[in-house]
Amino acid sequence: MSAILEIKNVTRRFSGLVAVNDVSFDLQPKEILGIIGPNGAGKTTLISLISGTLPPSSGDILFEGKSIANMPAYQRARLGIGRTFQIMRPFPGLSVLDNVAVGALFGRGGGNAELARARELARAQLDFVGLGKNVDQRADELGGPGRKRLELAKALAMQPKVLLCDEVMAGLNLVEIDEVIDVIRKVRNEGISVLVIEHVIKAIKSLSDRLLVLHHGEKIADGDPETVLANQAVVEAYLGKRRA
């Protein structure tokens, strides 16, 4: 099977600062790829480069074998790339239902033009992430954990082929984390490839098929989660720091 997403020597600079430095990796169909790294490692920047909200300084990004590096964000969304935001940005004035309906109205292949149908799909998606009771609330009335789920539902309503999750478990309690892990597993079982950025090591270790570690914008490890977490460089760069 060929990779659905290929990151090839991608670099992103912010006037002097190299946020992502010559990073390469593939995402396979139906794979859950975990990415960890200390704060400021370049994880969010990487997701922005893939989803198209930031252009890369150099390097190439292929989706299903074709370059998308110069494509505007909305076209990537229509190809099937969905993302969540670490700093959650719902459409604050809209209801929870309509926030998600936007994903169904646009999204992959241009979405579903029928508003009633889009709302139906949105409702199903909200049930799926456990926000079924909140459909009529305004999005800005949701608390932190609710907004994390809303981010997921919005991206999933786009019917993506690739889902990029930026710390969707941060700030959740253990029960909530298990629920989100369950949601992501189900998503993968539907055939979607998932890239999960996370700080919660325990969660990502059990969830990921493969784990990648970023440090100062560079990829310092990539492989089976057990092996990667035992890697000396990773322990020093990331785990060591946290324990200290």
């Binding site: 964000a73 969304a77 940005r89 459409f91 936007v102």
Partner: peptide, 8 residues
């Protein structure tokens, strides 16, 4: 930005 990444 949120609209753009959702396909608008």
């Amino acid at each position: 930005e949120g609209a753009a990444v959702m396909g608008v």
